[in-house]
């Protein structure tokens, strides 16, 4: 998806009663805290999922194909006869940590480009802008397909491709914020005192736009998760038998047509829950960072 609302300012978040809460989430309301809790749980499962999963992904027996929930198998079996709950727990790792890597990479790229553009201005800014403009011509999914064709389909390839495709959007938003910040007097004061540009950027400029960076990163996570799952779904991301929610939606599709939708729906629901939580939280963080910028 390339029409990213992250860059369109028109968003309506209704004001909610302010609750005292965690400092990082201040001003995001009850919804923000609930979403953050869901995300924390998801990340925890992504990390320790393999320890929780009662069965392994390869423990399959076709005789269990599409068998419903039983005593030891709370969610029943997939079409290939694997334990569904275990697959979901195991699949959380690539489904959540994958997008996380995309976001971190895209943010680092975006922030570096934005700061260099804003700091140097002039020809450097123009050259970077042109490069970004060309990248804008490649929607994330298309770039991932191209990357898969060149380097072979894998989670790493897809993640790198998405990070490169997202970076221009992040860079554009942050560049504007960095230029505003750059023109503040305190930056000039630091320059006069002889601090190096890198030190000023790292110690002052970046921390001062960190609210926006966090908000944009959160919103981006939702997009990365959906796009990465879609790429795995079409077979160009995570490769089976490695468990992954996007792969599970694809593998369960034959079951859907035979009237056994459990695998596809369960994996789809996991994706939706995380994406909704991350989007709601992102909207609130974004509204907050824009509120404080005014």
């Amino acid at each position: 998806m390339s029409a990213m609302p992250a860059t369109t300012p028109i968003e309506t978040v209704d004001r909610e009663p302010s609750v005292r809460g965690l400092p990082g989430l201040r001003g995001t309301g009850i919804v923000g805290h609930v979403c953050a809790a869901i995300l924390a749980l998801a990340v925890l499962i992504a990390i320790v999922g393999p320890l929780l999963a009662p069965y392994s992904a390869t423990e399959i027996s076709l005789s269990n194909s599409f068998v419903g929930p039983t005593g030891d198998h709370y969610l029943g079996f997939t079409g290939q006869g694997a334990d569904l709950l275990s697959l979901l727990l195991l699949g959380a790792r690539s489904s959540i940590l994958g997008p996380l890597i995309v976001v971190v990479a895209a943010m680092v790229l975006g922030v570096v480009v934005a700061i260099i553009s804003a700091w140097r201005g002039g020809i450097v800014d123009q050259v970077l802008s042109v490069i970004m403009d060309v990248l804008f011509a490649f929607p994330g999914i298309l770039l991932a397909i191209l990357a898969a064709a060149v380097f072979g389909a894998s989670l790493q390839t897809a993640a790198i491709a998405l990070a490169i495709a997202y970076a221009p959007y992040i860079a554009r938003v942050l560049r504007a914020a960095a230029i505003r910040e750059r023109s503040r007097e305190y930056i000039a004061a630091l320059e006069v005192q002889g601090f190096s540009a890198w030190l000023i950027c790292l110690r002052h400029l970046v921390p001062n736009i960190s609210g926006l960076i966090v908000a944009q990163g959160t919103i981006l996570f939702g997009y990365a998760m959906v796009d990465l799952a879609a790429i795995s779904y079409i077979g160009l991301g995570v490769q089976p038998p490695q468990p992954d929610w996007g792969v599970m939606v694809a593998q369960g599709q034959s079951g859907v047509l035979q009237g056994y939708p459990a695998e596809s729906l369960a994996a789809g629901l996991c994706i939706i829950i995380v994406v909704v939580a991350v989007n709601l939280l992102g909207e609130r963080l974004n509204a907050r960072s824009q509120g404080s910028a005014r």
Binding site: V226, A229, A230, Y233, I234, G246, V249, A250, G252, Q253, V256, P261, S264, L265, G268, I271, I272, V275
Partner: peptide
């Protein structure tokens, strides 16, 4: 997401 919508 489109592919989950497709399944549903």
């Amino acid at each position: 997401p489109s592919f989950i919508a497709a399944i549903v």
